[in-house]
Design a protein around this nucleic acid. Structure first.
Lengths: 338, 338
DNA sequence: CACTCCTACGTCAACGTTGACGTAACCACT
DNA sequence: AGTGGTTACGTCAACGTTGACGTAGGAGTG
């Protein structure tokens, strides 16, 4: 039942060698004869020996745990989940496992999780920074922990990050709506503390400006955290005397909330919608939803590459990688103003 | 830059006490005077000391790493992601972190990940077993590793598991379709090696039998792994001389594939569909999709409770918890045969 | 044949922490 | 004053592993 795990000492005793020799065989280091090595392997097999990576990491000079931390906002969000999966895939190929946590965009929780990860001596962390001050992140970074930020850049220096073309893609999406003749294009955005929200809003402004469309501030709603708030905001927009003929929804849950209201009012075929972030089934809705799609696997891969390289000792200057997003026209963004 | 992490010894030296006293203060154990404790805490703070949990786990008698492993099929699948999040939430409350991995329903990969987790001395694992033989899982379990299976039960004994009412809910869903007058109800299922698929198929048979509807074997398609295969199967079904008037799609991706084809053929308002597993936006489609919804947070919570209890030494008999699923009528399942 | 070099091992201590146990100082009773 | 108990520390070794270094024996060299 609760017998002790076999250790190197047990293997060594059975194979009648020293623990050091077992260590050599297990790690494939030279200095062990073929016959002895076979004996050691056989002994390890019969005992069901498994090396203890934590003890090993404690003693080794490089002190690697072959574990990285991933700290995202909400692992149940499809975007975060896909990103985690991408990071995990690449890490695994290097024998690195992933300790995952959700910070719920809460800085206190983020700090606690960071401490927990650090106590487990992860080799590095990939973080989707919670909004607001990033002092805990900065502090951790300054302690020397390899770190890569994803989705949002750091507010401090000397740290890699991977983001997408928030501003440019938003600008293009809005310009596209304007090119169809829309002059009343609403912006619905997530919390303003989020860098992505700010960027997408800036892109919206640029898109309007480029098309020579005047900004109507009453068509701008921000701080819509979650689909419910987005619904309220959309309803308010539609109740205006001069309601928008197109919506640019700058986050996936916001898009969903807006669609729900449009549908409830039977306006989903008349009001154009382009959403930032793709979501499953966007293609099955009527009309199918035009979105700006981020290259999530690409972002995850880049983030994994960066963190693994840093853990491996890469000390080149910090990188801000930008993985391009693409507009996916499906119908809702191609509705002309009535 | 890459200065050494401060250790207890450093703190002890600064506070002019022994490391043991530092240990006592850090762990809140009695036997340290108030003044000394303050000195130690101050020293720890100035040095930025962080306890090394892996060294601690190595020495402690209980040898806990306060880390559990989660091994699901695909962390980018919304179902798996939601489950991970639920487990993570509950684990965190006990100070336990989650090492996550995707086994891709591949037994070799599953075994490798299991070894990786075990090498990191996780206290227990929550596993969504890959199809086929579970010998690696069984082996790990027999070594004494606390284990909870989710979604699918073990094929071996003495192991907790958490599943949902696959059979009963499928039976009820099919019976519901039959009650509407459907006599040609198709079954589209995932890989037959999966226990859930088998259970749902059995439920389908029971539902038909209960309603006195004869089984038409040509309406049964299984081994549909992924939306693409589901599309092909759905197309084949609709091409039959006597096509089904209702579909029971036994997995979320299968549901999506079927919907795609129905929509392409403009049959989505005429052919009834009930899907097993809810998915985001099911309510926004036209018609909205009737589904059997699993209580994912409930399953995750139960699994977390079980594994944490086992890790804590609970040796009561193994539990097979069944978290009920609920039918969510939204429209597509309420279409009567034409 | 003495010398060096190499290979295949072994010995020992240390990684950062804590359990077991020791001890000095102090208090409260006889 | 002697006894017993408690409190607040310290000392030492060990958890499982590996780096540094030591050594015995054989092969190769001049």
């Amino acid at each position: 039942m609760d017998r002790r795990e076999p250790t190197m000492r047990d293997v060594a005793a059975l194979a009648k060698v020293s623990t050091k020799t077992v260590s050599r065989v297990i790690n494939g280091l030279p200095g062990a004869g073929a016959e002895v090595a076979d004996r050691v392997r056989a002994a390890a097999r019969t005992l069901g020996y498994r090396p203890n990576l934590t003890a090993s990491a404690l003693r080794r000079s490089d002190r690697r745990s072959a574990t990285i931390g991933v700290l995202f906002e909400d692992l149940s969000n499809p975007f975060d989940a896909a990103l985690l999966r991408a990071v995990e895939d690449h890490a695994r190929r290097s024998g690195v496992l992933v300790l995952a946590g959700s910070n719920e965009d809460d800085r206190v929780l983020q700090r606690e999780l960071l401490v927990s990860l650090s106590a487990r001596r992860v080799d590095g962390v990939v973080v989707m920074a919670a909004g607001g001050h990033q002092d805990a992140l900065q502090h951790e970074r300054e302690r020397g922990t390899p770190m890569v930020l994803v989705d949002r850049p750091p507010t401090f220096g000397d740290t890699d990050c991977v983001t997408t073309t928030n501003r440019e893609s938003s600008r293009d999406a809005v310009a596209r709506l304007a090119a169809l003749g829309h002059r009343d294009i609403a912006f619905l955005g997530d919390r303003r503390t989020l860098w992505t929200s700010q960027e997408r809003y800036t892109g919206y402004l640029e898109g309007l400006a480029r098309a020579g469309v005047a900004l109507r501030t009453e068509l701008v709603h921000t701080d819509l955290h979650g689909a419910d708030l987005a619904e309220t905001a959309t309803a308010a927009l539609l109740d205006l005397d001069r309601p928008p003929t197109a919506l640019f929804t700058a986050q996936n849950l916001v898009t969903v909330g807006a669609l729900r209201v449009l549908r409830a009012r039977d306006l989903h075929r008349r009001v154009a919608v382009i959403g930032f972030d793709d979501f499953p089934l966007a293609d099955l809705l009527e009309p199918a939803v035009t979105v700006v799609r981020q290259d999530v696997p690409g972002i995850g891969r880049k983030a994994a590459e960066l963190i693994l390289a840093r853990v491996d000792g890469d000390t080149s200057p910090p990188v801000h990688a930008v993985v391009p997003a693409a507009l996916v026209p499906r119908g809702s963004g191609e509705i002309a103003p009535s």
